[in-house]
């Protein structure tokens, strides 16, 4: 039972990160019908930047700030410079371009930083606190929950309470009509990519200290987990992505805890296949509702 509680908290903590990363995928998918396969590597770039800034200044938080800013900038640049060129092409083109970007960026990161794993410190203790002698959660888990919660609330406020959020949603749902109403859809797309990359960078900063460390491929498995989470949620539902993230986090935590940790990568892929076979539209899909 104690173990179950611990694994549950652990799963939710990882799940919160998958949820954030999945949400970033959904933000882009909803606006462009493209799965941003480059999102993982963009987050890694931000993390390396944070690593360099933290190393130079001795401050984790300056590095964290640098990751946020670089996420925004990278997202905007990738949309403006690369993705805009394949915007009107078949979706496969965008996928191929994104995958090309992944290989290229991983190669460049390897050249600059080398291909060894680098220790990436966590800003809070990763030793579990105990309640009545039962290990429950770490301070770092609390930091993760808090950060993801703040991030989600900020996004919810942006999208439902502000004029810019309304424009972004309109541009994503109905670009033609939105333009007739005066919305600069191109600018909203850039903003959407910037925001998504920011969220992705935060997710990367949260998960990299918990894993093997910093490496050009550090986010590959996280991408697969989060993609699974987004698919569980239907790919275009923000709430679905959050629920999907938590579910994936829990499943992987139980598999790793009760079976063995070597099987979690397999479990992610198995989960993805099962979801794609059973509910290709996802559990929260708005598009199936619309198709009826």
């Amino acid at each position: 039972m104690d173990r179950f509680v611990f694994l549950t908290v652990y799963g939710l903590s990882r799940g919160a990160i998958y949820a954030a990363f999945a949400l970033a995928l959904v933000l882009i998918f909803r606006a462009t019908r493209v799965v941003n396969f480059a999102q993982g590597v963009l987050a890694v770039v931000s993390a390396y930047l944070a690593y360099s800034v933290s190393g130079a200044t001795g401050s984790y938080w300056l590095g964290f700030g640098a990751a946020l800013v670089s996420g925004l900038v990278l997202g905007a640049v990738v949309e403006r410079v690369v993705m805009r060129r394949v915007e009107h092409a078949p979706p496969l083109n965008a996928v191929i371009v994104a995958l090309g970007l992944v290989l290229l960026t991983q190669g460049i990161l390897g050249m600059i930083y080398g291909n060894q794993y680098r220790a990436f410190p966590a800003p809070f203790s990763t030793v579990a606190m105990t309640v009545h002698g039962v290990p429950l959660m770490t301070r770092y888990d609390l930091f993760v929950f808090g950060t993801v919660l703040v991030l989600m609330l900020a996004l919810a406020v942006l999208f439902t309470r502000t004029a810019t959020g309304l424009r972004m949603r309109a541009a994503a749902f109905a670009p033609q009509v939105s333009r007739l109403l005066g919305v600069n859809v191109g600018r909203m797309l850039t903003l959407g990519w910037a925001l998504a990359a920011l969220v992705g960078a935060v997710a990367g900063m949260l998960i990299i200290p918990t894993g093997l460390g910093l490496h050009p491929t550090a986010m590959d498995l996280v991408f697969v987990s989060s993609f699974t989470a987004a698919v569980v949620g239907g790919l275009d539902s923000p709430i679905g992505a959050v629920v999907g993230g938590l579910v994936v986090g829990l499943v992987l935590s139980y598999v790793g805890g009760y079976l063995n940790s070597a099987s979690t990568p397999l479990a992610v892929l198995a989960l993805l296949v099962v979801v794609l076979l059973a509910r290709p539209g996802g559990l929260f899909s708005a598009s199936t509702a619309r198709r009826v």
Binding site: L166, R169, A170, F173, A174, Q176, V177, S178, L180, A286, R290
Partner: peptide, 11 residues
Amino acid sequence: VPEGRGVIDEL
């Protein structure tokens, strides 16, 4: 006001 009216369904 376009043909088919252009109401944004999701809003």
